Simulated assay, not measured.
Amino acid sequence: MSNLVRLIIGFALLGAAVALFVFGHWGWGIPTVFFSIFVFITYFYNENMLIAQWYLRKDNMAKAEVFLGRITNYEKQLNKMQYGYYNLLLGLMESRKAPMKSEKYFKAALSLGLHMDHNIALAKLSLAGIAMGKRNKREAQMYLTEAKKADKNKLLADQIKQMKDQLGMLDKQQQVRYSHR
């Protein structure tokens, strides 16, 4: 359903709720208000993305992929503020299948805009992991620093610390390799 249709339906339901209240039908007016609120929520948060995110948390990748697949043209089906989150979800799904191919989704998510600091930190932490996989220590360190700065509530502090430890081990391995030559 397009976003304009959602808004029209939401306002129509809200108008119907007001009319029901005016005519004294409180029993029908209250559920109508709640239903109009639900329609407005789906305007700001696409239901397919919400369900896909729920399945990602439950670690059910197949179902999450099905619901993200229902978004065929994200520029028409989503609000502009959801573009970054759509790419973040695609990146998270792709990182489980082919981690190196997920880089484009995380970079797109950051460039399109993520509004929550912990999501920015997650995208940058994922990019740091990809950079480590490519053995690009400088880029990995840069992304880790940015992820730590973005993680204001310390939700990813353990993962960032783990990644820094792995980066230190990578550095030691490279030093040992160069010293044996």
Rank of each mutant, 00 (worst) to 15 (best):
M1D: 11
S2V: 04
V5T: 13
V5D: 11
I9G: 00
I9D: 04
I9K: 14
G10K: 09
F11T: 11
A12G: 07
G15L: 13
A16I: 13
V18W: 00
V18M: 02
A19Q: 03
V22H: 13
G24E: 02
H25N: 08
H25C: 01
W26E: 00
G27M: 02
G29C: 07
G29Y: 02
P31N: 08
F34W: 05
F35L: 15
S36T: 04
I37R: 02
T42R: 05
T42K: 03
T42F: 03
F44L: 05
N46L: 08
E47H: 10
N48T: 00
A52E: 07
W54V: 02
R57I: 03
R57V: 01
N60C: 04
K63D: 15
R70H: 12
N73I: 06
N73M: 10
Q77S: 12
Q77G: 08
N79P: 01
K80V: 00
Q82R: 07
Y83A: 06
Y86V: 08
Y86E: 14
N87G: 00
L89T: 01
E94L: 09
R96W: 08
A98P: 00
P99I: 09
K101Y: 07
K104V: 13
F106Q: 06
A108E: 15
A108K: 15
A109Y: 09
L112A: 14
M116A: 14
N119W: 11
L122K: 09
G129E: 14
I130L: 03
A131S: 12
R135A: 08
N136Q: 12
K137V: 07
Q141G: 10
Y143M: 04
L144H: 04
L144K: 05
E146M: 12
A147Q: 01
A150I: 02
D158S: 08
Q159M: 11
K161G: 03
Q162S: 07
M169I: 06
D171V: 06
V176E: 14
Y178T: 10
S179N: 08
H180E: 08
